[in-house]
Amino acid sequence: MDGLTPDLLVLQLFTGLALGAIYVLLALGMSLLFGMLTVVNFAHGAFYMLGAYAGLVLLGMGFNFWACLIIAPIIVGSLGMLCERFLIRHLYGRGIDYPLLLTFGLSYVLVELVRIFFGTSGYPVDTPDILQGASDIWIGYFPTYRLFVIGVAVVVLTALWLFLERTPYGLIIRAGARDPQIVRILGIDVARVWLVVFGIGTGLAALAGLLAAPLQGTSPEMGSTILAESFVVTVVGGMGSLVGAVVAGLLVGVVVAMTSLFAPEMAQVAIFALMAVVLLVRPQGFFGRAGLMS
């Protein structure tokens, strides 16, 4: 392994963190839905993909990229709320596999619909002009757009944390997750809380998809690979734990980056090896509560 300089190692570490940022955004929504609603959302990858396509349509209508970053998650989040209201809501309290199977089926329907309306071949999404090219970050050059993605992830994380921890509505959401019955007795419409949570979760997935679009273009299947990866992140971090999603997301990114450096063909396997090790040592994940899945 010649040419392995400290600079390259640091740059590689940074690449891993940037990759982790997208995992974090996706796993965050997934973990939110599980932690609050005990729904394992297998359609999360499909909502991620819808976010990219919503952005594509909006860009085509003349909106700029910044507006899309706001509007696309709102559109997809609303669609997520419709799915919650008319499909998933009926399955609450029926055991974890019911909503799992439903969302699994839902993901096929959504992907097929996109294939029908947008074709199978996928579209390119240009990086916004101001974020094109590479920036000097002392240790080397790094794509400006990936720096921006890290920035967005930090902003979203902070906003979500403030919302959940520092607002009255956040308090209701947290209380609803802990004990929905008591919250209901206190005269709060828990169904509406869950609706909002589902909207936020799917909106976050859409934001991640839209952010990924300039990196890899859009395709109807773009959500399926990343769904598996972010599911691993959620499991490693602890199902339902937001802190866990962040830590595990960044860790998985770094693990992929470091394996790529020494044994590129092992990078994909490394993710699952990490999950296997964590499950053996700590079955509930880094920050998960034991027994939540049972």
């Binding site: 990759l19 080397g140 992929v256 790529s260 590129p264």
Partner: peptide, 21 residues
């Protein structure tokens, strides 16, 4: 001579190494 799995969506982790060569 690097290999990536079929259907990969992110090549960013391979690129700094290639660049440094």
């Amino acid at each position: 001579d690097l290999r990536h799995p079929l259907g990969a969506t992110d090549f960013s982790t391979l690129l700094p190494r290639i660049q440094s060569l």
